[in-house]
């Protein structure tokens, strides 16, 4: 097992080095596509980190993404870039901690609705502030950041997220979360501080999402609440993670990559029937792959080797 882990590590490192050379291809379209792939990979993985083990379905991805983007819109021209990212991350973590403390006692559908409302709440707060206080709606982000820079930052973040997820899964926190996901009452009786565990992971996952928003913001030059808080992101990330399988760290990638490529193919080839085809594909996913691609792999290897049952739980 140790040799296997080391092999996987080397493989991941090699892939990382290889991916770092994508901007050298010199084709802006492939770079844009790669940025899109990384963006959704990080978002879906971060989403799965919290929602996978705890089974809390969150629609707040957009809220944190938007906080990151807006931090850049406000501070991007004033402060040095690393500091802007740091402030964005801190802001995202702060909001997530408050939201987590006040809402993770909710469960099931109440939590879903709350997180959806949260995006709208934050968006309206931003609008209210801009309209009544700063009296500008729509900010310009002119920072000296190239597309390749955006790509490399996202790549670094991707590596960090996987490392973090791997560490958490091996920590007491990761174990506590899996117990919570199976049965929260039992977890409490075992002496697990369920609130702390949930809030901690929610905060970590939200901080990553905030950073993605901050890194992506310089791509658009112009940011207004409807651009930064576009609720489509929440739904796309959710469906990607579900397709991939959120119960595994590497599951969401299996959804994010094919779906991003599919969106791209559809909007390039069928620009006018995009939404219809997309709807049909979502239906197919939900009916045919209820446990995602990761679940399918496990099922296949289980029937092939008959030994996977123990690993699914581990």
């Amino acid at each position: 097992m140790n040799a296997r882990a080391a092999g996987l590590g080397v493989l991941a490192l090699a892939a990382l080095v290889l991916l770092a050379f994508v901007p050298r291809l010199g084709n802006a379209y492939y770079l844009a596509l790669a940025i899109s792939l990384l963006q959704y990979t990080v978002l879906a993985t971060a989403w799965g980190m919290f929602s996978g083990p705890t089974r809390y379905v969150s629609l707040a991805t957009t809220a944190f993404f938007g906080i990151g983007a807006y931090t850049v819109a406000v501070l991007g021209e004033i402060l040095p870039w690393p500091l802007v990212l740091l402030i964005a991350a801190a802001l995202g973590a702060f909001v997530a901690a408050i939201v987590g403390l006040s809402t993770l006692r909710l469960s099931g559908v109440y939590f879903v609705i709350f997180t959806f409302g949260l995006t709208e709440l934050i968006r309206q707060l931003v609008v209210w502030f801009e309209v009544n206080k700063s009296r500008v709606l729509g900010r310009y982000v002119f920072v000296d950041i190239t597309q390749a820079d955006i790509y490399w930052q996202l790549l670094a973040l991707t590596a960090a997220v996987f490392l973090l997820g791997w560490l958490i899964a091996r920590s007491r926190l990761g174990f506590a979360l899996r117990v919570i996901g199976e049965d929260e009452t039992v977890a409490k009786h075992c002496g697990i501080n369920t609130t702390f565990a949930k809030v901690a992971l929610f905060t970590i996952s939200a901080t990553v999402m905030t950073l993605v928003g901050a890194i992506m913001a310089p791509r658009w030059t112009y940011i207004e609440p409807s651009i930064a808080f576009n609720s489509m992101i929440s739904f796309q990330v959710l469906i990607m993670a579900l397709l991939g399988g959120a119960h595994r760290l590497w599951g969401p990638v299996l959804g994010a990559v094919p779906l991003t490529l599919l969106f791209e193919l559809l909007s390039a080839r069928f620009p006018n029937t995009f939404t219809i085809i997309l709807g049909c594909i979502f239906l197919l996913i939900v009916y045919m792959l209820p446990r995602g691609v990761a679940g399918l792999f496990e099922k296949l290897s289980a029937t092939a080797g008959g030994k996977a049952t123990g690993r699914v739980a581990a």
């Binding site: 379209y29 844009a32 992506m216 791509r219 651009i227 576009n230 909007s267 390039a268 620009p271 995009f274």
Partner: peptide, 19 residues
Amino acid sequence: YDDRSNAEEAVRALERLIN
């Protein structure tokens, strides 16, 4: 193409048109 009223989609569609 359809940019779906989305800034990111609009940027990517243009990069596709150009490259």
